[in-house]
Design a protein around this nucleic acid. Sequence first.
DNA 1: TTGTATGCGTTATCAG
DNA 2: CTGATAACGCATACAA
Lengths: 352, 352
Amino acid sequence: MVRITQQDIAKVMGVSVMTVSNAFNRPDQLSAELRERVLARAAKMGYTGPDALARQLRSGRTNTFAVAFEEKLSYAFSDPFSVAWLAAFSEVMEKHRASITLLSVPAGDADALGAIQNAAVDGVAGLCGNQPAMERARQRGLPTVYCTLNRRDGSHEPGDYVVIDDHAAGKELALHLRRLGHRRIFLLAEAAYPTQAILKEYRPAEFETLVDTYADYGFADYLRLSGMVEGLAGLDVTIVPAGTNSRRAGHVAGTLVLDRSDRPTAVVAMSDVMALGFMDACRQRGLEPGEDISIAGFDGLPETAEAGLTTVRQPVRDKGRIAAELLLDPTRTARRIILPHELIVRRSTRPV
Amino acid sequence: MVRITQQDIAKVMGVSVMTVSNAFNRPDQLSAELRERVLARAAKMGYTGPDALARQLRSGRTNTFAVAFEEKLSYAFSDPFSVAWLAAFSEVMEKHRASITLLSVPAGDADALGAIQNAAVDGVAGLCGNQPAMERARQRGLPTVYCTLNRRDGSHEPGDYVVIDDHAAGKELALHLRRLGHRRIFLLAEAAYPTQAILKEYRPAEFETLVDTYADYGFADYLRLSGMVEGLAGLDVTIVPAGTNSRRAGHVAGTLVLDRSDRPTAVVAMSDVMALGFMDACRQRGLEPGEDISIAGFDGLPETAEAGLTTVRQPVRDKGRIAAELLLDPTRTARRIILPHELIVRRSTRPV
DNA sequence: TTGTATGCGTTATCAG
DNA sequence: CTGATAACGCATACAA
């Protein structure tokens, strides 16, 4: 298949390349009659329109925005939080006739930086907190929007963001459990990095040290965790990286936590899906969440309502929508946005 | 922010642009020592790597593949069939380090053709059957893969495809109902086009005429429908475009179908989600699917099992996987693939 | 209203 | 191993 260009059409018609280009892009720059003739001739020659790649290089814009995930791409379609965020994000993009490309950017994967470098996009929204990847995008000069922050010092990543106050939210949840009288508590963390030890138990003090190991990428859900640790200060707290963020990971964590003699009275997962998986594990053992052990999650997914799971609701769809708006409108003023969250107490957490 | 180019680096270092380019792309083309120096200098100057757009224009490849949807993009994340397909598709793409961009290509939308024309991709997989859009991609010289065919004459669209034999599948389902003794049957079709009348009732004869109206785009699920009509020949058949493919559309169709005096004894939806929505409507009226009215769906989603819904299973994940493989390997031989399907009879369909 | 010259940033080719 | 030259296909700025 041979490639037809505007040059070819121009040559055949005896007009300049510019006239052909204008026929496609700026109807007002040439007579309607000539335009018609050019278009007709182009069609006859099998020319469907300006080449996307050339046009992009020339104009410097792609009209496409990337969404960066830390996990496998298939995760993007299966995790309820991710799906809700994407739906809101894509609605805005669609309204602006922009398209979206999905980028998998595993933490600790050098090739992932290549993917960011080679992405032909006008901006990147980070559904993950992969620092080096987002930073690379920024260095390329692309607008970036974080949807989660996870730096231990609370220092702001460069670039825009739309988040909730995860530290405060974590602390609220912690205080709720403290008030209920819980004194021995497990926290299920996400383990997002290949090198991360899974189902190993850490004390808050050791944990702070561990976090340093992942300082480059940011430790997933660090702010939530640190908020909880702060709220639970003085109590018997254990932190367990449970695996990737999934129902299955929560279920597996159940085997570690539930079958021991010194079982905690309360467990908090850093996400609802993990918490739901943990509840599955409970029921499998004939334990009733709320009755025999208290459980809380994080995110506020719709399915937590019927499960009776205590959780912190965050405005997922707003996050997605605003992230898109920030990328599309570089002039918008407020570019570091903290959305409200809400502690929702349900029957899965009860007094000891 | 000023843009650093390979030229700048070359000039500063007193080497040629080619040497800089080679330092990034072809380590074997220059001494390790020089390469190191170039890379170091580039980094110091804030150059992160070759510009994606320029590289794409030059090489003619983007390493990105498009998935075209007929519905709103948010649909892609909410419809179970679409999600399963995407998960399989993206797994393959990810393995090849390719990324995917999502394209919304509503039928009858002229701008949609612009979206296809401007997409910087190496190929297009059509999760929809939007003819003009896919045809445009093909004219651009892009590899295309259909995942559904919907031409009335059964003529093959140009381009590759990976499908099931929808006509045969529809007919099998029809014969199943016929054997059960059903004589008055409603078929719930998807209405994918904005201009399409919804909840209007058609007889098979009129329907064939209606289909012509949408001949350009192809009528959604036409083959399934025609297979059913064929299998139900001579019986009292009514076809109802019920709206976009969703649970809600099925539910709404329930109001039309269930509250009438001459209620059909069986209803078939062109997708499981519509069938499930229709079942919701039944229960709302105290009608028991299978007991008071027979219902069947199409696709074989996992959730049909617990719902006890009779359906035709199609290998969703295989479709997604193979579509990706076809796009990635243009030399692959068998490019028109028909996968097996399977009629699954459950308790939602019973003898009259 | 139409045309000309030029460059977007990179990489293939081929010569040194 | 290194470098000069020429595209890739289009659109901006400006001239006619």
